[in-house]
Design a protein around this nucleic acid. Structure first.
Lengths: 186, 186
DNA sequence: GCCAAATAGTCAGCATACTGACGATTATTC
DNA sequence: GAATAATCGTCAGTATGCTGACTATTTGGC
């Protein structure tokens, strides 16, 4: 048939985009009582997990660029789920903290988030789920640096000498990554 | 450690979002000479594959809602890669055709698209790639209806009786799907 | 201590993606 | 055949996600 699109619709990239749409829709559906999105959840979770974190560190924790994080935390702040204060030590930074309402939301939304994750993988047999998750993690970790906003977990450091956090030792965060970066067409 | 985000970063939804970011970035990088995106490629491919297709059918072919398709074909038209004329039979529709430039772009970009698909799966062993793709297709197909813009391939019909396309026989396209639909929070 | 380089956050601009509403047109029902 | 339904494309509104440029601040070299 002339209009067989299977060459297109079977491409990894196409299927991954579809699965992301589906996972996003499932989240919104499960969490619709909370008026909350997957990204907002990720940001709030990471902030609550590391009180006082600044926006750039949050980027590395949830794998978003600084512009996007700025919008997301702005929305969280508007909903009064977090506070955003200028950093005490470094006045360029914003220190992020979950409010009581934010912590409450995290607790209440948890079952919906868990249900979403189950629903996404529901069509697979239990053994397949493990294999799929293993390969998914592998793909993401190995391709990490290809993304403009790579995940950069804080490495486990000796608790911190003299109370001051050691500088991150891995690749530079922005300027030097520009060569690798891909830009969206106009 | 207090700030271990692995519960978050190991969630299927989070990893799928990351992989989609990565696949998108890889595409832009491979195709940067063409100033083109994965979605624009999918739309142009499907239009070229079924000349005269209307926008709603294109939605079903590439799994995007009507609003988004409107923007995408608008950009393709602005780039003079397709034409958009009012439908002859049904004046509500727009009939889409790839231009010579559009067909040329499709041909020239093909190696970059193929390279992108290889790069996405590159970290997996050959046997894993097959398994991953099989499960990916399974997840997308089984969860298809959870997405607001489910893929609806034109079913293979007896070539068409009396030259007129039979109505699609599956679920209604918009109105009745609203119950299932999930809406983005404000 | 001063100045250049680096970094944090913001902004405008663009593309993807969805909802709900709308006008125009077509199909259906009576 | 006229009233009603449904459908097509579009619009405004919102959220995610990126680039490149900008300001404010901090850091590092001298």
């Amino acid at each position: 048939m002339a209009d067989d699109n299977s060459r297109l619709t079977d491409m990894p990239g196409h299927l991954i985009r579809r699965l992301q749409q589906i996972a996003f829709a499932l989240f919104l559906n499960e969490a619709k009582a909370f008026d909350f999105t997957p990204v907002q959840y990720a940001a709030l979770y990471a902030i609550n997990n590391d009180p006082g974190i600044d926006q750039t560190a949050l980027c590395n924790a949830v794998a978003l660029d600084r512009s996007t994080i700025g919008d997301v935390v702005g929305r969280l702040e508007k909903k009064r789920l977090i506070t955003r204060r200028s950093g005490a030590a470094d006045r360029r930074t914003k220190s992020l903290h979950a409010t009581a309402a934010g912590r409450r939301l995290l607790a209440h939304i948890d079952p919906a988030v868990a249900a979403t994750q189950r629903l996404i993988l529901a069509p697979l047999k239990p053994g397949e789920r493990t294999a799929f998750m293993r390969m998914l993690k592998h793909l993401v970790h190995l391709n990490n640096e290809h993304s403009r906003a790579p995940l950069r977990p804080k490495e486990s450091l000796p608790p911190s000498r003299s109370g001051r956090r050691a500088a991150r030792s891995d690749a530079p965060q922005t300027r030097d990554r520009r060569e690798l970066a891909v830009r969206a067409p106009r």
